[in-house]
Simulated scan of single mutants.
Amino acid sequence: MSTPEQSSRPWTAPGGMPSVPPASPGSQPPQRTDGGPQDGRQQPPHTSRPGQPPTWQQPPTTGGGPGWQQLPPEDVARLHRPGVAPLRPLLLSDIFGGALQTMRRNPEATIGMGLIVMAVLLVPSLLGSLATVRLLTSLAPTDVEVLTLTVNLGFSLLASYALTGMIVHVVGEAVLGEKAGLGATWRAVRGRLPALIGAMLLMGLLMLVGTVVLVLAVVLLVMALVETGGGMAVLGVILVVLVVLGALVLGVWVSGRLTLAPAAVVLERLGPWRSIARAWSLTRGREGWRVVGISLLAGLVTSLVSFLVQLPLLGVALWALASGGIDLSPLSTSTLVMDHAFQLVVGALVTPFTAGVAALLYLDQRMRREGLDVVLVRVAQDRAARRAR
């Protein structure tokens, strides 16, 4: 298992096109396993300095003891897949399978971490919702319900984003065959939580600005058509529908491209704005549509899983509550408690998978665009050599 120091700055963004870090004497350069080009691609820079721990950009040379060349053939073959995903540009099956394998191999740092994080942040959400219902009795029930939903949504997003950052670190270690524990994950990610929250708020602000612009555009369009007379009513309705549908597609496309921002925050140690810019840069061109499509597919899968998990639990809970004569109105204490309990269970099961998909998509884009797979194979060689001593 890697130490916290070794994983503190794992994936620094490339700043130029230096050559691959030198190998130990007598070693052969790592070969790509996908038939892609060996040279001419941007490589991560040499970021280590004397006295600093090795990073994935500059693995140390092995001095003394057996090198990776002296490993058994089966161990050398595993260097191209030391962990949950192969060290080459990934397929859809690699991404989904890697996310699931991370959860299966390290349940305490994925599902266990999900239960802890969701519980820590959903408890104040529940208390805030109950306080809203108790204190704001002068408001209409519909207004109170909207406020409770807003409080719940805010804490749920915060829990989901914090958990995503932690799972990204776990997946980053799992790719190289390492198992990150709860304590090591917390020590590695706790300093990135403010940046994660800042990125979430910044993306929310950008989405809010976009929504306001859309609403203003629709209102101005309707006003302009009303002034022209009745013959334009049908055309106005069609134009409004087209504008709204176009805005929805644009919103999905933008949000899909920004799914890599949490990985950039945690793995590259970037701030909120730079992580958003980094995610946008990694998904430019045709690759952006691939990232958006896989993210949408992952969202559909998790929605189906959420429905299948919630359906029997909801049926049992409603039967128990109804048979006991307990109030099931939307603002009742029992309903609020039950809703938060469902979010706790579903979030702990679903968020590790979506975070794993985002982390592997980030890894895939860096291997395709920056040749990160070559560096990761070199790191796998070094770690295998150290274990063989």
Rank of each mutant, 00 (worst) to 15 (best):
5 E>W: 00
6 Q>M: 06
10 P>M: 01
19 S>E: 15
24 S>C: 07
26 G>M: 09
50 P>C: 03
51 G>I: 01
53 P>M: 02
63 G>N: 13
64 G>Q: 07
65 G>R: 06
73 P>G: 13
85 A>W: 00
91 L>H: 14
94 D>C: 09
100 L>G: 02
104 R>P: 01
107 P>W: 02
110 T>P: 08
112 G>T: 00
112 G>F: 00
121 L>W: 05
122 L>W: 03
130 L>N: 09
140 A>H: 15
146 V>R: 15
150 T>W: 06
155 F>W: 07
159 A>Y: 01
167 I>C: 01
173 E>K: 01
175 V>K: 00
180 A>Q: 01
185 T>C: 00
186 W>I: 00
186 W>C: 00
186 W>G: 00
194 P>R: 07
209 V>L: 14
211 T>I: 14
213 V>H: 10
217 A>Y: 07
221 L>Q: 08
224 A>K: 07
230 G>D: 13
244 V>H: 05
247 A>C: 11
262 P>D: 04
263 A>W: 00
278 R>Q: 12
278 R>I: 08
278 R>E: 13
288 G>E: 08
290 R>Q: 12
297 L>N: 05
304 L>G: 15
305 V>C: 05
315 G>K: 12
316 V>I: 14
319 W>E: 14
322 A>W: 11
324 G>A: 14
328 L>F: 07
333 T>M: 10
338 M>Q: 11
345 V>Y: 05
346 V>E: 02
347 G>A: 08
347 G>S: 09
350 V>I: 13
357 V>R: 01
358 A>P: 08
375 V>G: 09
377 V>D: 04
388 A>H: 09
